[in-house]
Design a protein around this nucleic acid. Structure first.
Length: 117
DNA sequence: AAGTTGACCAAAA
DNA sequence: GTTTTGGCCAACT
């Protein structure tokens, strides 16, 4: 069903470690093309599996939470991230200098989601 | 098939 | 700080 780009995006997002966050652009870069950021947003909107794909850990490039987060709103997104130990600058901005995932140690094999055949 | 839209981003003005 | 512009991909008219 999903294209390979979406599959790659979902696998990457599902492998973002607890307590860390990523940006749409970063996920896009890991998926192969830094300019796929928009597609990443679309992929999250079409999120096929809430339980395995932590879309709340994907933020804007400036660390701001998703305005259109459909899973309980930004307040819910804030609560989840705060509970995971993510550092905030203010209510709707994450401190990326402290909580952005480390690309070097990122391990795609930790992915919790796999494309169905 | 072709045009529009969107949970984006970086650069430019 | 804001707005505009160009660029990518997939889903939806």
């Amino acid at each position: 069903m999903s294209g390979k780009t979406f599959d790659a995006i979902y696998q990457i997002v599902s492998a973002i470690p607890r307590g860390k966050v990523a940006t749409y652009g970063l996920v896009a870069a890991l998926a192969g093309n830094p300019r796929l950021a928009r597609a990443v947003g679309n992929a999250m909107h079409a999120n096929p599996d809430h339980s395995r794909i932590p879309c709340h850990r994907v933020l804007h490039a400036d660390g701001k939470l998703s305005v259109a987060f459909k899973f309980g709103g930004i307040n819910r997104q804030h609560d989840i991230l705060a509970d995971e130990g993510v550092h905030f600058i203010d209510y709707e901005h994450v401190d990326l200098s402290r909580s952005l995932m480390d690309v070097e140690s990122f391990d795609i094999s930790l992915a919790m989601w796999k494309p169905e055949t």
